[in-house]
């Protein structure tokens, strides 16, 4: 067993026993770790950590700047909930069908979008994701919930994930998703195909020269990462108890990118930390900001400071300017990874 695997095991075990730890972290969380409120925040943060790792596979490893990663995630959320609500299919089956559907959709959209590269690819994926977002908002067939979203079809959800006392089960499910994503992503990026992903990121013409067609590899990376994101969506649905319009938006896609870069692109654990920290800050920063000294500042300053996205945006700009490798690069010595690459 490698050292990193042992480290991962220790972290996962530590997170797994967290719901039994009655310790309170002042300011950051509203209550001790064993209360449902805190566990819910942590569940969301864990799902985002997994989502960030899935995005890291396509962006950090394969070097494809997709601006549409919110789409498979939102499809996971909406698809599962709609199948439960409209077709009365139980949760696990609904999630499985949705996952299969998202993989098919990703293959189709990926084949179109990957005809372009670089920034055009970014814009095209953004357009696809936005099309779904607009579809949900305008809701021409009146079943997508529009701006209000759709609350969880709880009749179809297994008992163990239903009541507030069971928040810890959802937390464990989120943790399982994150660990699963880590393992899958790890296996994929260290496989032979994963080496080709990185080669495409570094120098695509060279890959072609060596007699490999980049397209199937790019499509594989796109599809696997979309599948993992969709899986995350099915868990997220339980954690926030509903399908929310926010997960479809372009802003959310950009947030995923922010998470990955915040933690460090091209490192799975870096992306996971980025997603986790982003999740907690995004949910808790506004409470932190309004609860103390910031409230006494003049209004032109306290208004923006109580906006989590303002603080995160500024933090992100500083990080991009001064620590382009993300938080994980501050912890490790500089490497010849993505952080030092210039195009």
């Amino acid at each position: 067993m490698k050292r990193s695997s042992i480290f991962l095991f220790v972290v996962a075990a530590g997170l797994a026993v967290l719901p039994f730890v009655p310790i309170e972290v002042p300011l950051l969380f509203s209550g001790p770790f064993d209360t449902p409120g805190t566990l819910q925040v942590l569940s969301v943060a864990l799902v985002l950590a997994g989502l960030a790792m899935s995005y890291d596979m396509i962006f950090g490893y394969t070097g494809l700047l997709s601006f549409g990663h919110a789409l498979p995630f939102a499809l996971g959320v909406y698809g599962t909930n709609l199948l439960m609500l409209e077709a009365s299919i139980p949760y696990v089956l609904a999630a499985a069908i949705t996952l299969g559907g998202v993989i098919v959709v990703s293959l189709v959209l990926g084949s179109v979008a990957l005809r372009t590269s670089g920034v055009a690819f970014a814009m095209v994926t953004l357009a696809f994701a936005e099309a779904f977002s607009i579809l949900v908002i305008s809701d021409p067939l009146r079943f997508l919930g529009g701006e209000e979203g759709i609350s969880l079809a709880s009749e179809q959800v297994p008992d163990m994930f239903r009541r507030v006392v069971n928040t810890r089960n959802i937390y464990w499910l989120a943790l399982a998703f994150t660990v699963f994503t880590f393992v899958v992503a790890r296996v994929v990026v260290s496989s032979r195909a994963g080496r080709v992903f990185e080669a495409i990121r570094e120098n695509e013409p060279r890959v072609e020269m060596m007699g490999l067609a980049p397209f199937p590899y790019k499509l594989a990376s796109f599809t696997i990462s979309s599948g993992l994101a969709a899986l995350g969506g099915t868990v997220y649905l339980l954690a926030v108890r509903g399908a929310n319009i926010g997960t479809t938006s372009a802003d959310f896609t950009l947030s995923i990118l922010v998470m990955v870069v915040l933690g460090g692109a091209g490192k799975l654990w870096g992306a996971a930390i980025g997603g986790f920290i982003y999740g907690i800050l995004n949910l808790r920063l506004s409470t932190v900001a309004t609860s103390n000294a910031i409230d006494n500042l003049p209004e032109w300053l306290s208004g923006p400071l109580s906006e989590p996205l303002f603080v995160l945006g500024v933090l992100f700009v500083i990080l991009v300017m001064y620590a382009p490798g993300g938080l994980s690069s501050l912890a490790t010595k500089p490497s010849f990874g993505r952080a030092t690459r210039r195009s």
């Binding site: 920034v119 970014a122 950009l254 922010v258 303002f310 945006g313 700009v317 210039r342 195009s343």
Partner: peptide
Amino acid sequence: GQHVEQILLTIGLGMAAVALMGGW
């Protein structure tokens, strides 16, 4: 010369600017 980083920078700026206007 660092195109991806420039995009990331403008994403951060856009995010902060929208939140700034929201706050004001």
